[in-house]
Design a protein around this nucleic acid. Structure first.
Length: 838
DNA sequence: GCAAGGTC
């Protein structure tokens, strides 16, 4: 009896033949790559002749009949919804079809060895259909294997199953949906925009390529709309030039950092903790395709597309294992020691391979991905440098081999020392590292682990330090690298391990994106396309459409839904979108055109390597300053919250002016101080000291709520009345007007019991409405303790009428444009006191 | 001239 075995690719067929018998015979077929191997085998007590051959991926390809070739003639809606689709054997696969027909006719059983994934299951059905055409009675079985090893192949033959039609149908659904959507949307977009804007390339749409572009555009927009924000932080440095980082990292409020700086400023710091612990740097996971592409891009500067091309060549020459694999754990059946032994005579890493064999070997970490079809990428034959066709091929082989040897090594080991310093109530730390054993790092030149020296201090020691207040600013997001894009696509399920690099290639071929070095940026066409979708409210560039598709495929694969249902539902949804696009085509042209116009210098700027995103005005189309400011405020609030959280003594402390949560600091004396994050009010020892100082000078009343200098009673010659003005005028114009009814005013040796400010004795004119014509008042802005409602109204009116009229005559008129102090506007707007300004 | 997924 003859049994026909069909694998997805030639290498698997050869491996199966090798595993089953060393004495197999090899025959040529109609396809030069796909050999036929013959061998005798005992299959479940039956003596059979095994015929083992292969296909090369899918046999069939979905396409529209030729009558739909003319794009202008057919409404894209017809293409999407109604046009029939053919699923025929591709012309380049007809020799394989012939092979299968010929072999099947001579065999009584068929064992399908296609990869154990959805696509493999679908190819299995393509194969069995062809075989049944020539031999309708052939008995069909499906082999399930997780690696082409002795154990797995024999186990598969002992546990043959039936092919799963649901899995195959899920692929058919995906194929039809992708083709219908891709063809119809591409035709619509191209016909609408290509001539109009004189574009050379077609404006394709694909459910993987456009979300890929979406990631690239998304990053560019983040960069373009970025607004730099300043922050401040403390830093301490000891005599050994060792810099200790502030535990709070940085804050966005200069005043608070300055305050903390002042409170901490001294020459000494106490070492409060010296912690030592053993640490490891983990060796890499076994290499799957995605990781391989990322590494090639990041470490070798070889694009994912090129890397796959090179890996395929190495695979075909027998140097490495199959490079398209999702698996990042080795199956227990694979003999890793043998793979290492193959490298023992290598001129570069032979010694290292020997060391692994003799003592240093450690079983690789197991990742959590397994496609059940291929092991992680590893070397299968030793290659020395001059055997490689070029440097890039050598680099790729080297990466794969070094990565494999690293996987079979031990983690690197080190010792980490963290020194924590305390200065007043602030903490600073520095972590040092001593490497004890390099282990995998000896062979894995792509990873670094640097030693960091720290001084040898004892806990409790007082050391000399230099404390500085530093300024920094936030930086824009980094441009998208190819490795990052691969990661995003993988995470969002866009494409497969075998196709991710192709989609990245496609968006470049379509001129949607351009790659310079490892950086990938959208072109103006790419930006205009995605922006148009966004403006018109479509989410075609978002990854979740693909995720929905994936979910639906799973439902078909699990038999919960019929293939036709999923196709119908998805196509109906996309028909609604396509109809809307058609209705809005004028708007699309307009929007697309506006973007192209606005971005006319964009590509050129990109080519000029203009990475200074702050200056790239051409691309700043959607900078929403208000949003950004809100974001910044959020950040400040977040930081302030952090500040508060760390030092809170759980006392409820809301600012009496703006109701914000106050920050509470503990002093060394054990007392607490509170500061409103918006600086409405400061109640701490500093202001208290200043108030005490102010008493010594009877003209000084309290600290200016904007600049913290003294407020003084002054006299306006023009208005011939008293007012309170900041002593640092003209630097600070803070002014508190008094009602006309005030006849005399003077400070008194008494503090407001609410805000602790110096109080005033005021005498009102006889004809005023004041009930009490000689009273004590607190005039501190916003303190509501003693200020009367009619006063507020009175002064407010006065300020309103003063504004803009005789400003030169009223130099003390408050205004918001001082510029020396932060948060002044928000501060002022919170004021309930009369001199509020807008 | 359209998609994405296999593969050489």
């Amino acid at each position: 009896m003859k049994v026909l075995n069909v694998a997805e690719k030639p290498s698997v067929a050869r491996s199966i033949a090798n595993v089953l018998s060393r004495d197999h015979r090899t025959e040529e077929t109609k396809s030069p790559f796909n050999k036929l191997f013959k061998l005798d085998y005992k299959l479940r007590d039956l003596d059979v002749e095994m015929w083992i051959t292969s296909v090369s991926g899918h046999l069939k390809n979905l396409k529209y009949p030729t009558k739909y070739q003319n794009w202008e003639k057919w409404d894209p809606i017809i293409i999407l919804k109604e046009a029939e689709i053919e699923n025929n054997i591709s012309t380049d696969k007809q020799n394989l079809e012939q092979n299968l027909k010929n072999f099947a006719a001579m065999c009584s059983r068929l064992i399908l060895w296609l990869d154990c994934d959805r696509e493999g299951e679908n190819i299995a059905f393509e194969v069995l259909e062809v075989c049944r055409e020539s031999n309708p009675s052939i008995q069909v079985y499906r082999a399930h294997f997780s690696a082409v090893t002795q154990v797995d192949v024999r186990r598969a033959l002992d546990t043959l199953k039936q092919p799963d039609e649901n899995l195959s149908n899920s692929v058919l659904a995906r194929q039809e949906i992708d083709l219908r959507i891709g063809a119809s949307f591409t035709r619509f977009q191209t016909l609408l925009l290509q001539k109009q804007f004189n574009l050379s390339s077609i404006i394709s749409y694909g459910p993987c390529q456009i979300p890929t572009l979406g990631f690239v555009v998304g990053r560019q927009k983040e960069i373009d709309s970025f607004i730099k924000e300043q922050f401040w932080f403390l830093q301490s440095e000891d005599d050994n030039k060792c810099i200790y980082n502030w535990e709070r990292e940085h804050l966005f409020d200069e005043f608070i950092v300055a305050l903390l700086f002042e409170r901490c400023y001294q020459d000494n710091a106490k070492v409060i903790n010296v912690q030592q612990k053993d640490v490891q740097k983990w060796k890499p996971y076994p290499l799957c395709t995605i990781e391989f592409e990322k590494l090639a891009s990041k470490k070798l500067k070889i694009s994912a597309h090129k890397a796959m091309e090179l890996a395929e060549k190495l695979y075909n020459k027998g140097y490495i294992s199959y490079p398209r694999t999702e698996t990042n754990k080795f199956p227990p059946t694979i003999n890793l020691q043998n793979i290492i032994r193959d490298q023992q005579n290598h001129p570069i890493w032979g010694d290292y391979a020997n060391k692994l064999i003799n003592s240093a070997f450690e079983y690789p970490k197991a990742g959590n991905k397994d496609d059940k079809a291929h092991p992680p990428i590893h070397p299968v034959k030793m290659m020395i440098e001059n055997e490689a066709q070029n440097k890039q091929e050598w680099d790729i082989y080297q990466l794969i081999t070094r990565h494999f040897l690293a996987c079979c090594s031990k983690n690197a080991k080190g010792s980490e020392t963290t020194i924590t310093l305390q200065i007043n109530d602030e903490f600073f730390s520095k972590t040092g590292l001593v490497i004890k054993e390099k282990n995998f790092l000896e062979i894995y030149i792509y990873d670094e682990w640097s030693q960091i020296q720290v001084p040898n201090y004892q806990c409790g020691e007082i050391i000399k330090i230099k404390l500085t207040l530093q300024k920094g600013s936030t930086s824009p997001p980094k441009p998208m690298t190819e490795a990052e894009l691969i990661g995003l696509m993988d995470k969002n399920g866009i494409g497969t391990d075998a196709t991710i690099h192709e989609h990245i290639n496609t968006i470049q071929e379509r001129e949607y994106a351009i790659k310079k070095g490892q950086i990938i940026k959208p072109t103006k066409i790419g930006l205009a396309l995605v922006e148009s979708y966004e403006i018109l409210g479509f989410t075609l560039h978002q990854p979740f459409l693909r995720a929905v598709m994936e979910q639906r495929m799973n439902e078909v694969a699990q038999g919960k839904m019929e293939k036709s249902q999923i196709v119908q539902t998805t196509i109906n949804e996309m028909t609604i979108i396509l109809k809307q696009l058609q209705e809005k085509q004028n708007l699309i042209i307009k929007t697309f055109g506006q973007y192209l116009e606005a971005l006319k210098n964009y590509d050129q700027d990109n080519n000029d390597d203009n990475d200074d995103n702050q200056n790239n005005n051409q691309s700043k189309l959607h900078t929403n300053q208000e949003d950004q400011i809100n974001q910044n405020q959020q950040k400040t609030i977040k930081n302030n919250k952090m500040l508060k959280d760390k030092k809170s003594d759980d006392l409820p402390s809301l600012c009496q002016f703006c109701n914000s949560q106050c920050l509470t600091f503990k002093q060394l004396t054990g007392n607490s101080i509170k500061i409103c994050p918006k600086l409405c009010q400061i109640q701490d020892d500093i202001s208290q000291n200043a108030l005490n100082q102010s008493k010594k000078n009877k003209d000084n009343c309290f600290l200016c709520n904007i600049c913290q200098n003294f407020m003084k009673i002054r006299y306006s010659k023009i208005k011939q009345t008293n007012f309170l003005g900041c002593s640092s005028y003209p630097k600070c114009n803070q002014t508190i007007f008094l009602p006309d009814s005030v006849k005399t005013i003077k400070t008194i040796d008494r503090q407001c019991n609410k805000c602790k400010s110096t109080m005033f004795s005021i005498q009102f004119s006889e004809n005023s409405n004041q009930v009490n014509q000689n009273s004590f008042f607190c005039l501190y802005p916003g303190c509501q303790q003693t200020i009367r409602a009619d006063w507020k109204q009175n002064c407010k009116d006065q300020n309103q009428s003063n504004r803009g009229q005789n400003s030169e005559k009223l130099p003390f008129q408050p205004h918001a444009q001082n510029g020396n102090f932060k948060n002044k506007d928000s501060f002022s707007n919170q004021q309930k006191f009369p001199q509020k300004k807008n």
